[in-house]
Design a protein around this nucleic acid. Sequence first.
DNA 1: TCAGTCACATTGGTCAGGCCAATGGAAGGT
DNA 2: ACCTTCCATTGGCCTGACCAATGTGACTGA
Lengths: 240, 240
Amino acid sequence: MDSNFDALVDALAQEARVLGPDARIMTERALAERLGNSRATVRENLGSLEVLGMVRRTQGAGTYVTKPDASFVRQLFDLMSKFGHVDHASVERAREMMEISVVQEAADRAGHHDVAALRGHIDDMVRATAAGDAQAGHEADYAFHKRLFTIADNPVIELFVDGISLALQDVLAKKRARALSVEAAALPEGSGSPRRTDTIHTPIVDAIEAHDRSAAAAAMVEHFSLWRQITESSTMTDEP
Amino acid sequence: MDSNFDALVDALAQEARVLGPDARIMTERALAERLGNSRATVRENLGSLEVLGMVRRTQGAGTYVTKPDASFVRQLFDLMSKFGHVDHASVERAREMMEISVVQEAADRAGHHDVAALRGHIDDMVRATAAGDAQAGHEADYAFHKRLFTIADNPVIELFVDGISLALQDVLAKKRARALSVEAAALPEGSGSPRRTDTIHTPIVDAIEAHDRSAAAAAMVEHFSLWRQITESSTMTDEP
DNA sequence: TCAGTCACATTGGTCAGGCCAATGGAAGGT
DNA sequence: ACCTTCCATTGGCCTGACCAATGTGACTGA
């Protein structure tokens, strides 16, 4: 349909193959001349490629080929949200569904080394929680989930989930904060140290170590179930 | 970062909310005046929104707000493929992973009516296969998978999987054709009618009817396993 | 010799104004 | 009532210009 756009894509894809990745490409003026278009047309198409995460432009420096990353997916979901084409619930559920599939894939592929890494992240999480360090706990939790994607080894799913996570990070942060407060309030009064074992993530790792896809999925489902139980325990106050 | 783009998005999102969906929006010239930009700038940003599937422009007619659909996701994967940012195997595996998660979600949500519809599609498939009508068989197969997404009821996952399917449709069509020939060759010589029962999709529906997430996932995994077994039985000839 | 400064060519960002081409509806004819 | 023609509207594309950020190389002073 749009031959100008396709021609630009072909030209850039060729240059990207010849030069390495992250390479600087021709100037807009040179591209316009080579393609027989005006700079305005080239610029419009380059703008399209930029929002798609295929190129990065910097005034004064030049245009570089890049790989679409999570921030692009995040922008996509932000836009769809602004235009009312998706709702938070669907997006969040999609993320959960993908993570459930990821944990099953991980159960197939994980080796001893991977399992050890996962347990290490859980230990960090428990330690941070015991120390009351919410930030460290959050980071360990993130590292745990990130490791699952490394094991599952599928860049496409990882791209989508990362983007969704970014798009939801604000609302997720609020939920996480409330979850922590609820959890703290639920502790036996003055019982001293919080729990020293993790009952949410450990079953996931156990299932992965056993290469049991079904158990891994079930454990992840339970993980999300608990999460929802905590975050939705109190009435939501969604003020803009 | 790009205030012009954001301003345009806000203006369009507002208009899209006031007017209904699929509404015609302001002229490029009017948008330029309203936003205080030149038409060139507005056009470049509109081009970005167009490739993202948020608007559709037609020369002489106008610009309309649209919802991103599968063809947008397809284009995204085509581009990533052209730039060497993804490989076919990862994309296809991502689709399988998502379908595995979809079938689990369907197992949670399916009602009697849904199960009956699924079995109806299987019947169509078997009938078409028995009649040697490859086209009808393909359509019934597509309807079956499509119905799973309807049951799972998650537009985000459906969008991604549909887009991936479009992006892979050529190579998938080739594989499907070979699968059919292999299947035909595997039939007992002159045994008359092909099998009248479906051993691939029926277990999936049975698991869904029983609301058994694990069994549904396992059945879908088996489905893909058989699929791979057939399509990869002969040596691949991948000539460009 | 080296570090800092500054001028300048390069390059993307934006603008103004124009013409072309497709669309769709209004005016007019049958 | 239907079809045709005409034309205002609107997106597609172009030219040429200026602005702003970047980076490099010459220049300067320690």
